[in-house]
Design a protein around this nucleic acid. Structure first.
Length: 933
RNA sequence: GGGUGGUUAGCUCAGUUGGGAGAGCGUCGCCCUUACAAGGCGAAUGUCGGGGGUUCGAACCCCUCACCACCCACCA
């Protein structure tokens, strides 16, 4: 093995080997285990969130594969309608053209080209991260099979009346010029104004004052509403106002919706451009008047003076005209929630259009008659309530219920060009026909060639196809063996941000079309944030490419990467400055295993993770530690008899101890992974490897192997070194696949283990019978002995290499036996020159003291002793003991504690009291002796 | 307006039936002791957000307040 750990030289090689040998394909004889990858945007790149998520899934996949489960991790990508179309449109803009100039067919062709060109990025990133997905089954949401599934679902839902087309008020993005669903709208508080406008009464004098945050919509007003209980206005209900600038007379109506305490208590009603007004308008028989074009410019329904103005230009003009007419009562600053499209950031306009919807509110009874329970959402709620699906952590169930219980119909049509074309055809006479294709439509409806049919121009919401992912990727609507084997899948690993977009919809569709849940568990993880806790985003310039942490990147390249291709190029200087501050040296290469270990250690209980490069440094060091430990083991075992010969072996206390500790670790790791606590799994592995195997066991093995120890003991030691390491490598493999494989290849033969790769070896299973409390107690005694000496060295400034004579006072029989058994290890680890056991009554010379329970370990300090330093040291120890003792005495003096606390707790305190008193007594004695010097 | 999560060492975070406050990084000493200086050995560091309650005993359970973050919601 190389002297230094160099991840770049091992990682790509092993991934290629695994893939070439087909180790990612389902193969186990055991239960099926399946994870569907949340498909990333096909033309995107993986960010830290993906890397985190992929690591979690890969740990699960590798763990289950090693447990013998028939494991499928299904990969694939999503066509991501809006996002992808926008990327390509930006490219066209840069070339000085646009999609309209190109035409639909050519534009879609352009996107396919872009996909082909950029599509490999994600796969390459995933390979570098070690993700053990079955590439042979890779799917894309727009490939033929998945598109067939989409059409099948659409047709069937439509046949059942669960998909309908209707004219509704929807969220409209005037830049993209498409409808978006409720979920794609993000509202945030912004500073605006409230304008108070006077509407003169149509008959007679006087006026009403309406308050509005959107004065321009008054062009489409169809009524003014007041609260029926409002004494101020009650007498006006039924009369009319004359809409200024427009001249239309509109009624004053009474509606409970109006809050008399807000604004002026008079509400202008614009049914075509406000969701609330739409409903109020409906109640009062108002016909909505649409005043905007698809670009949100004022249309022909408004007076000529305003036609063609953008909605914000129109606002200014209208306010000015009100003012000029003396009809502007006032303007007040006002904070309001502004709805914006999550993709473009454009303010969404409520807009009346024809769209396709999935009916999520229809209710049926058991016998199929109308009324009763919500046909689509109730089973989805029940599945979770009954435990058919379990959320981890559980608190997300509440979020899930709340959303489903108050859901609106899902607008699934988009006025885009990139996506699944809606399988509906029009005959131009008002006839709408749905089918798998035009021929199917003609067949189903008896339409011959004399009827011209044109297909709907719109495409489906991307999430429509994503909702089918758990079964469409397995071949549905065909009844494939894979579908039978792997559906329902085992677990969905995803972020909370897409519970509504994706998780809930998969559950609804899975139940509807497979009659069973799409997955048994949903493991919700947190968001990866930057070191300052901010969300990572390209526009903020704080994104990290996980591969840059793996391979490292110099500062200039990082700056360049973060400042090119920005939606807002003006942010580049700020991003550059921030990047130079955060990474003055660029980013060092850490390797994939260190990055993965970091992700695992950050995966606590679903809360967001603040990404700290210091952690990666630490875990890179951990990889290095493991590497060097392996080098030590190989140096001492290669070419040696590791117990496979005829000589037989003997295991010492240290061997029985480390084997015992390994069992506990194995159990802890398995439990942690099963419970989705990757942080605990990582920590257990870390502590066992560093604090026990390296710090103690490797050191304990040295005297045994170096001296003229018993050959059987040496063989036992070598065997234990190799076997424990081999098990440790299997234990750590799901988290750190590369380094474990590299080392395992060298270690496995020495441990007598066959196999091509660690990834198909069984995951270690703890054997309770190999736990050894006696050995653990004995090694703990030794550790306390050694630590006592080391502390004296450290605090007395004695060189670590200087051999020390040691005196033992008050040694019990067990202490004497242990001393005899472990003399060589103690000499080596504590650097002892000699050990003298003092008999009762024998006086110790001036010395520094360490306590191992009743045993007093003394280092004679003749001439060397620094009286003040030793007194200070002892005093510190004394204070600690005295504080402890006082607390214990206080508890035991409390009658209520003694009588009410459980007996074992009380007994523990009593033991502590005795030990504490004894220790304190001896410290006091020691201090008195030192004082006398 | 509803809801969720958080507040523990300088930083990032663990702390699972309430019973001696922990890790990593950072900091401070001493060491190039042939597995590892990406290391070894030793050390320091916390009114567990504030207040109240339950309990023999609270970081943990209950109430309340403060602050932070996020989600949902139609107040013009």
């Amino acid at each position: 093995m190389d002297k230094t750990y160099n991840p770049a030289s091992i990682e790509p090689h092993w991934y290629a080997t695994w893939e070439r040998n087909g180790h990612f394909r389902p193969a186990g004889e055991g239960d099926p285990y399946c994870i569907m990858i949340p498909p990333p945007n096909v033309t995107g790149t993986l960010h830290m969130g993906h890397a985190f998520q992929d690591t979690l899934m890969d740990i699960l996949a590798r763990y289950h594969r090693m447990r013998g489960d028939n494991t499928l991790w299904q990969p694939g990508t999503d066509h991501a309608g809006i996002a992808t179309q926008m990327v390509v449109e930006r490219q066209l803009n840069a070339e000085g053209t646009d999609r309209h100039a190109l035409g639909r067919a050519a534009f879609v062709e352009k996107i396919w080209e872009w996909k082909a060109q950029s599509g490999g990025t994600i796969q390459n990133q995933m390979r570098r991260l070690g993700t053990s997905v079955d590439w042979s089954r890779e799917r894309f949401t727009m490939d033929e099979g998945l598109s067939a599934a989409v059409r099948e679902v659409f047709v069937r839902l439509h046949d059942e009346g669960l998909i309908y087309r209707g004219q509704r008020l929807v969220n409209w993005d005037p830049v993209l010029q498409t409808a978006v669903s409720d979920l794609e709208v993000e509202s945030s508080e912004e500073q605006g104004s409230i304008w108070k406008l006077r509407y003169p009464l149509a008959d007679g004098d006087g006026h009403l004052v309406v308050a509005t945050t959107r004065p321009e919509t008054m062009l489409g007003d169809t009524a003014v509403a007041v609260n029926p209980e409002d004494e101020r206005y009650r007498h006006l209900v039924g009369r009319h106002v004359k809409l200024p600038l427009v001249g239309r007379e509109i009624p004053i109506v009474a509606d409970e919706y109006v809050d008399p305490a807000f604004g002026t208590g008079c509400l202008k009603i614009t049914p075509a451009h406000d969701f609330n007004d739409y409903e109020v308008g409906q109640r009062h028989g108002c016909t909505p008047i649409n005043i905007f074009t698809e670009e949100a410019r004022v249309n022909d329904n408004a007076p000529a003076a305003y036609q063609g103005l953008d909605r914000y230009e129109a606002r200014e003009r209208i306010v000015a005209d009100f003012e000029a007419a003396g009809l502007l009562e006032g303007i007040e600053p006002h904070k309001l929630m502004v709805p914006r499209c999550d993709r473009t950031g454009v303010v969404v306009e409520p807009y009346l259009t024809h769209q396709w919807f999935v009916d999520l509110t229809r209710e049926v009874q058991e016998d199929g008659r109308p009324g009763g329970w919500a046909e689509i959402t109730r089973p989805a709620i029940q599945a979770v309530r009954q435990g058919d699906i379990r959320f981890v952590p559980d608190n997300w169930t509440k979020t899930y219920y709340n959303w489903l219980e108050d859901i609106q119909d899902w607008c699934i049509s988009r006025q885009l060009w990139w996506g699944h074309r809606i399988p509906a055809w029009y005959d131009g006479q008002g006839g709408v026909y749905v089918g798998h294709d035009e021929a199917d439509v003609r067949r189903r409806n008896g339409l011959d060639e004399t009827t011209a049919l044109t297909q709907d121009e719109d495409v489906l919401d991307t999430w429509f196809s994503s909702a089918l992912w758990p079964f469409s990727t397995l071949g549905w609507p065909e009844e494939t063996p894979e579908l039978a084997t792997f559906y329902p899948t085992s677990v969905l690993v995803t972020g909370f941000d897409i519970i509504f977009f994706w998780v809930a919809r998969m559950i609804m569709m899975g139940l509807k079309f497979r009659g069973d849940v799409p997955f048994r568990e949903v493991y919700i993880h947190g968001l990866v944030r930057d070191s300052e806790g901010a969300k990572m985003s390209k526009s903020k310039g704080n994104v990290l490419d996980p591969i840059d942490i793996v391979d490292g990147i110099d500062l200039e390249s990082l700056v360049a990467k973060r400042t090119t291709g920005l939606m807002q190029p003006q942010r580049a200087p700020a991003i550059e400055k921030q990047t130079r501050r955060a990474f003055p040296e660029g980013i060092a290469a850490h390797g994939t295993d260190a990055l993965r270990f970091t992700f695992a250690s950050l995966a606590t209980t679903g809360r967001d993770v603040v990404f700290d490069m210091g952690r990666v440094d630490g875990y890179r060091n951990f990889c290095n530690k493991l590497w060097n430990a392996a080098r030590y083991v190989l140096m001492n075992t290669e070419g040696e008899d590791c117990g496979s010969g005829d000589g037989g072996i003997e295991l010492g206390t240290a061997e029985r101890w480390i084997i015992s500790r390994l069992q506990r670790t194995e159990r802890a790791v398995a439990e942690a992974i099963e419970g989705y606590r990757m942080d605990q799994a990582a920590q257990a592995i870390y502590e066992f490897t560093w604090d026990e195997y390296c710090d103690w066991y490797l050191e304990l093995s040295k005297p045994t192997l170096q001296g003229d120890a018993d050959p059987a003991r040496a063989r036992g030691t070598r065997q234990t070194l190799v076997r424990v390491l081999e098990a440790l490598l299997r234990l750590a493999h799901p988290i750190m696949p590369f380094i474990t494989e590299e080392i395992w290849q060298r270690v496995a033969p020495l441990a007598g283990v066959d196999g091509d790769t660690v990834m198909t070896r069984p995951f270690p299973v703890a054997e309770a019978g190999r736990e050894d409390p006696a050995a653990e107690a004995e090694i703990e005694w030794m550790q306390r002995f050694i630590l006592g000496i080391r502390r004296i060295r450290g605090e007395m400034d004695i060189a670590p290499g200087k051999p020390l004579p040691v005196l033992l006072q008050n040694a019990a029989d067990l202490d004497r036996q242990r001393l005899q058994r472990h003399r060589a290890e103690l000499d080596f680890l504590a650097r002892l020159e000699s050990v003298t056991v003092l008999e009762a009554g024998e006086e110790a010379p001036e010395s520094a003291l360490a306590l191992v329970d009743e045993l007093e370990v003394r280092v004679p300090m003749a001439g060397l002793i620094d009286k003040a330093a030793e007194l200070a040291r002892l005093d510190k120890e004394r204070r600690r003991l005295a504080d402890d003792l006082a607390r214990t005495e206080g508890k035991l003096a409390n009658e209520a504690f003694v009588s009410r606390a459980p007996a074992d707790v009380v007994q523990r305190e009593r033991d502590k009291l005795a030990e504490g008193r004894s220790a304190l007594e001896r410290i006091d004695g020691q201090m008195a002796r030192i004082e006398r010097l």
